[in-house]
Design a protein around this nucleic acid. Structure first.
Length: 155
DNA sequence: GCCAACGTTGGC
DNA sequence: GCCAACGTTGGC
């Protein structure tokens, strides 16, 4: 099983929005970056776990844990000319963009702020891609040892 | 294939 | 609002 980190702007879709969704499940749509797309389409498996991360907000950080409940299928928003994520180059016969379904496992009792994670950028989390300079990926793989270490920071 | 211009991300 | 770091686009 793999581990991931999924970024979302809480002003657009927060962990509380996910908690309020039917079956606490949502379609992770709108990803428009090829590297992130490849992770979604090729590597994410049902049962994988991901950190839910709030970005572009007053206190960026990990706020919840989600489970992948459905593997990749075409992103419908790319076909909809009225949708902000519309991409005329994505065709139904040859979809360019993909989504997975994720379900909230739990919110963290206390968010793990980016500033706190950064304390370990030089040692325990030195290879965490989230902390790398210039990182902009919205779907990031997390090594299992980093996953476990981050969870240990909760207490 | 190169590269300048442009757009986006995201922390601060 | 600023700006660094990318990724994408399009002319050549």
């Amino acid at each position: 099983m793999k581990h991931w980190l999924l970024k979302s702007e809480p002003g657009t879709f927060s962990v509380d929005d996910l908690a309020a969704s039917p079956r606490q499940t949502t379609r992770w749509d709108g990803v428009r970056n090829y590297q992130a797309r490849n992770f979604i389409r090729d590597e994410m498996k049902k049962g994988d776990l991901a950190f839910f991360y709030h970005s572009s907000c007053p206190e960026p950080g990990i706020v919840g844990i989600v489970e992948i409940t459905r593997e990749a299928y075409p992103d419908e928003t790319a076909f909809d000319s009225r949708d902000e994520h519309f991409d005329p180059k994505s065709e139904r016969s040859n979809p360019r963009w993909y989504v997975v379904d994720v379900r909230l496992k739990r919110k963290l009792d206390k968010p793990l702020a980016l500033v706190k994670l950064k304390q370990y950028a030089g040692d325990r989390l030195s290879d965490l891609r989230l902390l790398k300079r210039g990182n902009r990926l919205s779907v990031i793989p997390v090594a299992s040892k980093n996953w476990r270490f981050i969870l240990s920071l909760e207490r």
